[in-house]
């Protein structure tokens, strides 16, 4: 569709130009983001502040904005185990003092106390994440496909096979390629079971990926790829989907009005507290 749109814009001779927006910046809001994992490790929570959206200023995207350092951050499991955290100035994270590994069936509460509005009294922000039973495909294939207008073998089709549990499920997939986990949020893959809910599925095209341009190829014949699948709560999956689609603004032909990304943090903060409990399957790129 984007290719068609590009062709159409080309035909119209449309152009771009910078535009100054006369907008009033929002008052700063606290942003809390943490994703617990099933790896026995120190889990991290990041506290930051929103910054104004100003023309030409992408400083925040580069991590220059000041992190929130002064806060009490605590995680409590539904078994009652409390995991206090401490600020790690190296990475601007709050990190659990002890290693924490999440388990299906349990839920975890986040409790943050922070005087974000600097009135001398800390505000309280909370969230809960529930670890769902593992679910996902039982096998994977990665095959190159040829596509017109693309170089030979530049597109790799990731197909999955398995049986989906009944009821709507939401998944976040991550790839480990040649032993290296691609774990940035923008490398995650979001999906649901709308096409195969409660049924077996075979050769389902999960995603098409290309090798990065002007870099060492990521996918090539013989390289091992692991697919980590996490069965997650709907809100968390949609949060990730919305984060991925946040940039860009309104697209008159195919998109609706822009909107703010959801949150599960109470107390007026933004961000999300979620978890990834993964199952893993592997394939060799053909």
């Amino acid at each position: 569709m984007k290719r068609l749109f590009a062709l159409f814009c080309l035909w119209l001779g449309s152009c771009t130009a910078p535009i100054d927006l006369d907008v009033t910046a929002e008052e700063p809001r606290l942003v809390i983001f943490g994703v617990l994992t099933d790896t026995q490790e120190h889990q991290t929570i990041r506290l930051q502040s929103t910054v104004p959206y100003t023309d030409g200023s992408d400083s925040y995207a580069r991590g220059v904005a000041e992190a929130i350092r002064s806060a009490e951050v605590m995680i409590t499991s539904s078994r009652g185990t409390v995991y206090p955290t401490e600020y790690n100035s190296l990475n601007d994270f709050f990190r659990t003092r002890d290693a924490l590994e999440i388990h299906p069936g349990l839920s975890y509460d986040l409790d943050v106390r922070c005087d974000f509005n600097r009135d001398g009294f800390p505000e309280r922000y909370t969230a809960t994440t529930r670890v769902l039973p593992p679910a996902g495909p039982d096998s994977l294939s990665v095959t190159p496909i040829s596509m017109p207008m693309m170089d030979e073998n530049r597109i790799y089709k990731f197909s999955i096979y398995g049986r989906d549990p009944a009821g709507p499920n939401w998944y976040i997939y991550r790839l480990r390629v040649d032993g290296e986990l691609r774990n940035n949020v923008n490398q995650w893959i979001f999906g649901d079971d709308g096409f195969y809910d409660g049924s077996p599925y075979s050769d389902y095209p999960l995603v098409m990926l290309t090798n990065p341009v002007d870099e060492e190829p990521l996918f090539y014949e013989g390289v091992e790829v692991d697919l980590l699948t996490s069965n997650v709560e709907e809100d968390f999956a949609l949060f990730i989907s919305e984060v991925m689609g946040s940039e860009g603004g309104e697209m008159p032909l195919f998109g609706g009005p822009p909107y703010n990304v959801r949150t599960n943090i109470t107390g007026g903060a933004l961000g999300f507290f979620g978890n990834l409990y993964s199952t893993e399957i592997s394939a060799i790129v053909q």
């Binding site: 929002e26 930051q48 502040s49 104004p52 992408d58 904005a65 822009p258």
Partner: peptide
Amino acid sequence: PTTYPIGQYDIGGLTVIRYSDRNAYRFP
């Protein structure tokens, strides 16, 4: 009428835009 960005923050390396109320601004 349109909806403009009024702030931004970071989630896992991605810039997330905060938008104004629906149609709070206008195109030129």
